[in-house]
Design a protein around this nucleic acid. Structure first.
Length: 292
DNA sequence: CGACTTTGACCGGCGC
DNA sequence: GCGCCGGTCAAAGTCG
C-alpha cells in the first residue's frame, strides 16, 4: 500500500486511460490522469489513515526515545533498505508480536541538473546529520532525520544512483507521526531545509505530491487536495524562503508541462507506459488470426 | 545569535 | 580476533 512507491507503478493508473493519449495533448492527458490519481489517492488515503490510526497510536506510545535512540536496532534497518536488492545482514526478523518494523520505502526521483544538491523534496522538513561515501556507490549518501525528531523517528537516505546519475534514490525509514509540513503550515512552507523530496514521501499524508527541483528552486505540486475541480489546485514555489502561492491557469499549465518533462525523463515510467499502451493497442486490434 | 550543515571520528555488526 | 563497512555523533563552520 505504498502509494505506488513514488510513482514506480504508473501502469495501473496509466492503463485505464491510455487510448485517449492518441487524440489529446500530453498536458490534457496528464491532467486527466492526475484527476484519476487524485480520486484513487483519496480512497487509498482513507484506507491508509484507518490502518495508520492504530499504528500511530503505537508509535506515540513508544515515541519518547532516549538520546541513545540513534543507535537503536531499528536504525540499522537501513539494511532493509538495501534489501530491495535482497536481504542482507539484517538481524533475524522479530517475532510476529514484536513492535512493527520501521517501514522502509525506496523512491527513485529524477535529479535535476544541479549536481550538487543531493536533495529531493517531499514536503517534510529534514535535518541532515551525516554523509558517507559507501562502497558500492561513488556518490555520497546523505542521511536525513525528520526535523521533528526525536518525536518523529523517520529517517531518509538520499544517494545518487550509481548506474544512472540522473536519478536520486531516496530511502525512507519509518513513518511520520505528524502531518506534512505543507499541510500543517502555510502552503509550501517549510521547504527551506536541505532535505525534502521524492515523490510521495509523505506516508499517509502526502501520497501524491510531485516535487520538481530546478536550479535551487523547488516546486511542490500538491495533488492531495480534497476539493472538487481540477486536480492541480494549487502549487507553491519556494525560492530560498520566499513563498509564492499560484493558482493561475498559466501557472498550472507550466507545472503540468514540467511534470511532462520530468516523466519523459523517467525511464521506468516511460517503459511502463509503453507496455501499457502496447497492451491496450493489442486489445483493440481485432485478431486476424483466430485462436486455434 | 540561533539554526543548520559539514565532516572527521567513533561505534557496532558482520564476514572471513 | 581482526578488518571492513554502514550508520551516527558531535565539534566546527556557515548562513541569515
Amino acid at each position: 500500500m505504498d502509494e505506488g512507491d513514488g510513482g514506480s507503478s504508473p501502469t495501473d493508473s496509466a492503463g485505464a486511460g491510455l487510448l485517449p493519449l492518441f487524440g489529446r495533448s500530453p498536458v490534457e492527458d496528464l491532467e486527466e490522469k492526475l484527476r484519476r490519481v487524485t480520486e484513487e489517492n483519496r480512497r487509498l488515503t482513507g484506507a491508509l489513515d484507518a490502518i495508520l490510526a492504530g499504528h500511530h497510536a503505537h508509535q506515540r506510545a513508544r515515541a519518547a526515545p532516549s538520546p541513545a535512540t540513534a543507535r537503536s536496532p531499528s536504525v540499522s534497518t537501513s539494511c532493509a533498505a538495501r534489501s530491495s536488492a535482497g536481504p542482507s545482514r539484517q538481524t533475524p526478523p522479530p517475532p510476529p508480536t514484536a513492535e512493527p518494523r520501521p517501514k522502509v520505502r525506496t523512491v527513485r526521483v529524477p535529479a535535476d541538473g544541479n549536481s550538487v544538491a543531493e536533495t529531493v523534496n517531499d514536503g517534510y522538513q529534514w535535518r541532515k546529520y551525516g554523509q558517507k561515501v559507501t562502497r558500492d556507490n561513488p556518490y555520497p549518501r546523505s542521511y536525513f532525520r525528520c526535523a521533528f525528531a526525536p518525536s518523529c523517528p523517520v529517517k531518509k537516505k538520499v544517494q545518487r544512483c550509481a548506474e544512472d546519475r540522473s536519478m536520486l534514490v531516496a530511502t525512507y525509514e519509518g513513518e511520520h507521526n505528524h502531518a506534512n509540513s505543507t499541510e500543517t503550515t502555510e502552503f509550501g512552507a517549510g521547504q527551506h531545509a536541505a532535505g525534502g523530496g521524492g515523490g510521495g514521501g509523505g506516508s499517509s499524508s502526502l501520497p501524491c505530491s510531485v516535487s520538481i527541483n530546478s536550479s535551487g528552486r523547488t516546486i511542490t505540486l500538491d495533488l492531495t487536495n480534497q476539493g472538487p475541480g481540477p486536480s492541480v489546485v494549487g502549487a507553491a514555489v519556494s525560492s530560498s524562503r520566499e513563498q509564492l502561492v499560484a493558482v493561475s491557469p498559466e501557472f498550472k499549465r507550466l507545472l503540468v508541462e514540467e511534470m511532462v518533462r520530468q516523466l519523459k525523463n523517467d525511464d521506468e515510467f516511460v517503459a511502463s507506459l509503453t507496455n501499457a499502451v502496447a497492451a491496450r493497442v493489442v486489445e483493440k486490434i481485432p485478431d486476424p488470426f483466430p485462436k486455434w
